[in-house]
Simulated assay, not measured.
Amino acid sequence: MPEVKFKPFSGEHCESTMLVNLLRQQGIELSEEMVFGLGMGLSYIHWQSSAMPYPFIGGRVKPDLLAENLSAVLGLEFDVRETGSAARAQDNALEALEQGKLVGLKLDHYYLEYFGEKRVHFHAHYATLYKVDGENAWLVDTKDGGGGGHTSLDSLSEARSAKGPMSSKSLSLTVKDGPALEALRAQLADKLPTAFFVALAANAHTYLNPPIKNMGYKGVLKSSGSVTGWLDEIADPAESLPIIAMLMEKAGTGGGMFRKIYGRFLQQGQKLTGVAALGAAAKEFEAIAAEWTTVAELIDRAGARGSQDALAEASRLMAEISEREHAQFTALEALAREAIEQAASTAGAQA
Rank of each mutant, 00 (worst) to 15 (best):
M166H: 11
E68D: 12
G145F: 02
L171Q: 08
E95G: 13
K5V: 14
S315M: 08
A296N: 09
Q308D: 15
L23S: 00
S168H: 15
V227R: 05
P8K: 05
V295M: 07
A351M: 12
V275C: 05
G148E: 01
G11L: 00
L139E: 04
V80D: 03
H123K: 02
L266Q: 00
L156E: 00
P242D: 02
D232G: 10
W230E: 09
E284R: 07
K260H: 14
V61L: 12
V103H: 01
M18G: 15
D300M: 11
L112P: 01
G145Y: 04
A89V: 02
L317D: 02
S49E: 15
G145C: 01
E158H: 10
N69L: 00
H121T: 03
G11W: 04
E291N: 05
I244G: 04
L200N: 13
Y111V: 04
L105W: 07
D154F: 12
M318I: 05
G164I: 10
P8R: 08
E323T: 14
G148Q: 03
A127E: 07
T17Q: 05
Y54T: 06
M40W: 01
W230G: 12
L74K: 05
Q270H: 12
N92H: 09
L102W: 00
A319H: 13
F329C: 08
E333K: 10
A202P: 14
S161G: 11
I321H: 04
K213T: 11
G147N: 01
K118H: 14
M246E: 15
Q308H: 13
D190T: 10
G149E: 06
A195H: 01
P237H: 08
A349G: 05
L332K: 01
S49A: 12
G27L: 06
A72S: 14
N21D: 15
P193C: 07
N136Q: 14
M166I: 08
T194M: 12
Y111R: 04
A72I: 06
D232V: 13
E29A: 09
T194H: 10
A287R: 09
V275R: 05
N21I: 13
A331M: 06
E325I: 00
H150Y: 13
W292S: 09
G146A: 03
L94W: 07
M34N: 07
L65I: 09
N209A: 05
A280H: 06
P53F: 14
V20P: 09
T294I: 12
I234H: 09
K163R: 15
H150P: 10
K163D: 12
P193Y: 04
L30K: 03
I321C: 07
S240W: 14
T83N: 03
L97W: 03
D177F: 11
